[in-house]
Amino acid sequence: MQDMKMEDIHGEFREYVLTYYDGSSRKVLVTDVESPYPEGRLIVSRTDPEGIITHVNQSFIDMSGYSREELIGAPHYILRHPDMPPVAFKDLWDTLARGEKWQGIVKNLRRDGGFYWVKATVISNIRNGKVVGYTSVRRKPSRQRVAECERLYPTLF
């Protein structure tokens, strides 16, 4: 996946290099600008079993800042924010592997370097007994839960 570009970033930024579970790396540029969660909406995406995005709704596009064309076919970790501890995503995959739903508070990275917090729920899409993909639905989290995660997540690296 391509590195983030300076010309796309709004505001002062910090630079990180993230290494993902598949061994690939990406330079990400991060600002302190938070986008508020859109009232009354759900942010929905689906991936194939390898975590490649196959469907996004308009709210996903609006909040991520990417176009639909940029998102479809991209790995879901395009949203990975460096403040999210890798252990959270390990827990996600371990939970799904047990056939259970995963839920957690997640800080997502936008194309412009900003971020937004979500309460995410992920489930396996099972058809004829086989996992054919995953659906992730995000809703507005409470600020209290976000504040708890802002304190907790830095301790999990």
Partner: peptide
Amino acid sequence: MEFMIDLMDTLML
């Protein structure tokens, strides 16, 4: 329909 059911499933948690 399966997609809507999956989505409802995420909302029931």
